[in-house]
Design a protein around this nucleic acid. Structure first.
Lengths: 154, 154
DNA sequence: ACTTTAATTGAAAATGATTATCATTAACAA
DNA sequence: TTGTTAATGATAATCATTTTCAATTAAAGT
């Protein structure tokens, strides 16, 4: 498993070790795939991509690793309504940054957007603060999606 | 199938007929269940509730009817991450009104909230307008969820 | 009210994503 | 290098949701 740029260990190295997890070949491979795409990959998409380089890695391991990464907050899991979950790296040098999704209910296309993020962040901050206090609810994450029809479908 | 208050047909009567759908007993029963709860019911929850009154109504019909209601916009379908979809009446006399959800990742509890809705609506309106134009995307619906730990779980 | 006709239904089987099992393998601390 | 234990992968199991298809029924027209 090569380092990403030859100058040192991948950025997730510390994160994994810090959480007490072993750095295995499958985990490297899966994180590599996630960090080198801007797509919204399903578990099987990731399995197929990983499989090209390491045919021995099984789908089960992909699912297990993804769950682990979601638990540790390194990966976000999304449901776009088509019956299979999608995964995105949540942060790090290769990630796209904070964004949300437009989901086309016609063709299933997903559009990332970052517009109005500043105002949105401000409202979210205020909302999170208020809700945390009112409901004694510790917020760790939020999800925003707009559903509708994309250019091709309307 | 009784009218809801004895003064006329249920509010959804016109909606169904208007869309060219037949008013059948199963559809009445399912809409009745949805309009008489504030819970976030799964398809099986609805099936069980309906089954008490009409044991002949099958789970398949519940799924089919829910899909129909989602398509026509009478019902919202949610995914709270536990592998089964939840359904809520989207409008009408009995509905709770516009709200969003706090999802506890510890115990799965769902809390409805309506706080900050005005400011949120304003931002959403602006965002929807901007996104519609920029991406030529016709927005029909939006989804907002906060994930975290509820009072019992933290 | 009775017929007609296509929409709707329900039981059973199929699907498909995800998870559990369990013997084998490999990471890494000592 | 070795021992301990987490991690893996092939297979089978699970479980929500769909599909199939023959039987039923809403409702429009007699």
């Amino acid at each position: 498993m090569p380092w990403r740029d030859g100058t040192g260990p991948p950025w997730w190295h510390g994160k994994m070790k810090g959480c007490g997890y072993r750095l295995t070949v499958p985990r490297h491979a899966i994180l590599d795939v996630l960090s080198q795409t801007k797509e919204h990959l399903s578990a099987e998409d990731i399995y197929l991509a990983v499989h090209k380089v390491y045919p021995a890695i099984g789908l089960t391991t992909v699912y297990r690793t993804l769950e682990l990464l979601v638990q540790t907050g390194m990966v976000f899991k999304f449901d776009f309504g088509d019956g299979r979950a999608r995964y995105e790296l949540s942060e790090g040098p290769q990630s796209i940054g904070h964004h949300h999704h437009l989901v086309c209910t016609g063709c299933g296309r997903i559009i990332d957007y970052t517009d109005f993020i500043d105002e949105e962040i401000e409202l979210l901050r205020k909302t999170e603060k208020g809700l945390s206090k009112k409901y004694n609810f510790k917020i760790t994450n939020h999800l925003i999606q707009f559903h509708g029809l994309c250019g091709k479908c309307n």
